[in-house]
Amino acid sequence: MKTRYSFGGDEHVFVEIDEEMSLEAFFKSLSMTNAVRDAQIRGVTEICPANASFQIKFDPDVISPDDMLAEIKSLEKQADKADPVINTRIIEIPVFYNDPWTHETLMRFRERHQDPKSTDIEYGARINGYGSVADFIAAHSGSPWFVSMVGFVAGLPFLYQMVERGRQIQVPKYLRPRTDTPKLTVGHGGCFSCIYSVRGAGGYQMFGITPMPIYDPEQKISYLRDFMCLFNPGDIVKWKPIGREEYDQAVADVDAGRFVPTIRNVTFDLAEFNRNIDAYNAKLLEALHA
């Protein structure tokens, strides 16, 4: 990993921890953004961690760009020494894979797809070497995923699969982005999954849909009353495959204000995780279902 610093005009410092994605790069980005927050550097207005990079927005009338850059650089050594351990949450997200709504949408945009004869999930299964869609769903929902970035649009999580690189699901984005994606679609592009928080354009392959809203600007949904966005960078997600009946029930429960998402506090230790990934994930899932 080689850290690269750049200015984004006169109001942003952009820091690329690594060109390629890894949990190590993500943790360093998280650690440095936490250090920037703790240091309470004057003039900072936004602190934005991303997958393998981060960005600080500042007011150059308060602190000069060079001073801002020097302040951030001075935090790198400390971040390198920090234990890659975080206190975070694991959140279960029910997913209706192969649902009728994303299916209807993907059929409307077949001419923008690499393989117009397959559905997105059939294509994803095949190019990742799975014999069936069921096997692919088992792999997608079998391991936990890290929320390595929140953004693009309000509350949208980017999710990084917590397995060895060789087992990570990878798919290209659509050849040309769609102009429509149903709200709460579970998508995948490159090595990242995401949940579309609002309806709109999108380029990720569509695998399913969750009944569980993750963004509510009116803050009426029971678990979004404290804040309108569910996710923070560093959260861990576990997908739970559900069928039509469970989906309809969950939607009714959300509408009635009685849907309670399964969320547990956990500690995540990257070194421990790297020693034995499957065993560590099993422990996380135990904590989720305890």
Partner: peptide, 15 residues
């Protein structure tokens, strides 16, 4: 780089 996507204009999603 890993995670960026195949087009030369692609990067690992950033801010």
């Amino acid at each position: 780089p890993f995670g960026a996507g195949s087009d030369p204009s692609n990067i690992v999603d950033a801010c």
